[in-house]
């Protein structure tokens, strides 16, 4: 057992900061409503330290509260594919040379109507992101970034044409679960063509978890904070795993 609570400035003080908006006018009544609301969430103490008017009948609150709830840290299992031990670019390239012995091919796109390429660009473009080079930079990888708003069908055709080992799908827009429909359609298309086992399928995006991606039929899902290193490491290890199988 390793029991933990939020830490303000003293172990186990249980202090948290909150901010939210209420659809009521700003004033003493609004602040009292905010305080009582916070207490109703199970907090033991609450101090509303700031309130301000946002618009007619809307006001914002900043509050500090104390919780007595705790969690057994040892009981927690994380749902994250991005392993702490991902290899960097040089190590991945060396791994490809040693264990695969040929260039591997990766195709990626923002599929469906999603026009936000920032995620796929961060993983694939030469430059990469935050000092982690993208897949285009890897000597052992032929990377094709097809950009935004690519239909699933077209992506699969392209992957076949260039004999891809892995397909990356980036989904940034998640309004009305559009990403789920789109990811499901992709996997169903592959299965209908009998191609699901032909490719390693990787999903990514700020609101994509590994659990969700695997449930939808992908090999893996990468969320916030992922770099090309994480994606490349997963792909090369998976290729070797498939070779052995």
């Amino acid at each position: 057992m390793h029991v933990v609570r939020p830490y303000g400035d003293t172990m186990d003080d249980g202090k948290v900061q909150l901010s939210f908006t209420l659809p009521v006018p700003n004033g003493a009544k609004g602040r009292e409503a905010a305080r009582k609301l916070v207490l109703s969430w199970g907090f033991k103490e609450c101090e509303v330290v700031h309130s301000t008017v946002l618009a007619d009948d809307f006001s914002m609150y900043v509050a500090y509260a104390k919780t007595e709830q705790s969690i057994d840290y040892d009981s927690v299992v994380a749902d994250e594919a991005s392993a702490d031990a991902s290899m960097d670019m040089e190590a991945v390239d060396a791994f490809i040379k040693e264990h695969i012995g040929r260039k591997i091919v990766v195709v990626g796109a923002c599929t469906g109507f999603d026009a936000h390429t920032v995620g796929i660009d961060a993983i694939m473009n030469m430059k990469g992101f935050n000092h982690h080079y993208g897949l285009e930079r890897y000597t052992g990888i032929d990377a094709y970034n097809l950009g935004a708003q690519v239909p699933n069908e077209k992506l699969i055709d392209y992957a076949l044409k260039v004999k891809a080992d892995a397909i990356l799908i980036s989904q940034v827009v998640t309004q009305k679960d559009t990403h789920i429909h789109n990811m499901t359609e992709f996997v169903e298309l592959l299965e209908a063509k009998g191609l699901r086992e032909r490719f390693i399928c990787v999903a990514g995006g700020p609101r994509i978890g590994n659990k969700l991606a695997v449930e939808l039929g992908f090999d893996v899902g990468f969320g916030r904070g992922t770099y090309a290193d994480d994606v490349a490491t997963f792909i090369v290890k998976k290729i070797v795993e498939k070779q052995k199988a």
Partner: peptide, 12 residues
């Protein structure tokens, strides 16, 4: 910006 479409208080 990197989290969600803006809340009313984010704009404020």
């Amino acid at each position: 910006e990197a989290v969600h479409t803006p809340f009313m208080m984010d704009r404020f």
